[in-house]
């Protein structure tokens, strides 16, 4: 089983990278099922399991940064156990759930842990050291590969039950706490952005954008259109104001024109 477990781990690692980088979608169950089928010597069953699991995950998509149960681990482990235990894939995917959850927890850890790294990148940016930025940007895919490899390897090699015990050793309060912290962290990113962009004259527009979502639940596109409308109004109004000021400083005839404009 070692060889198969290693190959499955290898594929999970590659697919884990593809889920966030590259996005060629070789990480979807429809592809992963076939590959796992090939590794375990039953392509046909792999294809069928992949099809079932693809539909299971069809509705679970990453929207606005929120991550559903991990599709890579679900697809890989689900297919592997469907073939190994000769079960219906829709049932076998149940075996994959603790590992899909563990994978999501580790992704949360990585995404939280990479926040401080941004400040190392900032330093490189300050020095105009582009190679430094490049290097740091290659780090996370390597980590993702390693973690996905381990999480997929464990249940295949040690069996689902024992591997689940290992995976469940991750303390829940820690994972939950970090995921709560991760949810709040964009606030720091926005604060830094505001630190650069914010001027009191722009405060009303910030308020409009905020209220439109908080109270109005408008999509961002709608708000951007409102923003463009305000900006356009402001842009052309500035022109008018300037013309008027120029008009006043000239002769009184322009005043009359101003009135007629007003009516």
């Amino acid at each position: 089983m070692l060889m198969e477990a290693l190959l499955i781990g290898l594929w999970a690692g590659i697919a884990g990278i593809d889920q966030f980088n590259g996005l060629t979608h070789i990480h979807r169950p429809i592809v992963t099922g076939a590959i796992i089928g090939l590794i375990l010597g039953d392509l046909k069953l792999g294809l069928m399991a992949g099809a079932t699991l693809e539909l299971v995950w069809a509705g679970m998509v990453p929207l606005a940064g929120a991550q559903p149960p991990n599709v890579v681990i679900g697809g890989v482990i689900g297919t592997a156990f469907a073939i190994l235990t000769n079960q219906d894939p829709a049932v076998a995917v149940g075996v994959a759930v603790p590992f899909a959850v563990a994978a999501q927890a580790i992704i949360t850890l990585i995404f939280t842990g990479f926040s401080p790294l941004m400040h190392k990148m900032d330093e490189h940016a300050k020095q105009a050291n582009t190679d430094g930025i490049d290097r740091l940007n290659y780090l996370q895919p390597i980590l993702l590969f390693a973690f996905f490899f381990i999480i997929a390897f464990l249940p295949i090699f040690f069996g689902a039950e024992q591997a689940a015990n290992i995976v469940n050793m991750l303390p829940e309060w820690l994972i939950n706490g970090l995921s709560v912290a991760g949810g709040i962290m964009p606030a720091i990113g926005f604060a830094m952005l505001l630190n650069i962009m914010f001027k009191w004259v722009y405060a009303p527009f910030f308020a409009i954008g905020f209220v439109a979502v908080a109270y109005g639940n408008l999509p961002i596109l709608a708000i951007a259109i409102v923003g463009v409308a305000i900006a356009a109004y402001d842009y052309f109004n500035q022109n008018n104001t300037k013309l008027k000021v120029a008009g006043h400083s000239n002769v009184s005839i322009d005043d009359e024109e101003d009135y007629s404009d007003g009516i």
Partner: peptide, 10 residues
């Protein structure tokens, strides 16, 4: 103006 409106929404 557009930028800050969008940041408020974000």
């Amino acid at each position: 103006i557009v930028g800050l409106t969008v940041v408020g929404a974000l």
